[in-house]
Amino acid sequence: MKKTEQRDLFPGALEMMILRILRRKPSHGYALVQHIKRTSHDLLQIEEGSLYPALQRLLKEELVKAEWGVSSTNRRVRIYRLTAAGAKHLEREVSSFERMLEGITRVLAPGES
């Protein structure tokens, strides 16, 4: 049994969001969580902890890299940064996600059944 995924997100969704945020700006874990919560207007209830296995997977696949630094609030934090491979991966993921979303939307659209 896989225990890692949040059941209310499909596999890979969290990673995709992380990559997207990191493309805009390198961040540390806590900032990422806050950002997701803020921008989704709390629609996505994710356990903060679930971020870390996702980050480790991204690290392992070398889609992001991490180094220790100091945050704007002057804390010692580990800052994640998108790699070139990560950027490419994100592009692919987003476009395939959009296709899927479009498909699902069409099927769910009223009137044509």
Binding site: H28, Y30, T73, V77, R78
Partner: peptide
């Protein structure tokens, strides 16, 4: 360490 820092910040 990272997780500890995360909790601290929160």
């Amino acid at each position: 360490e990272e997780i500890r820092e995360h909790l601290e910040e929160k």
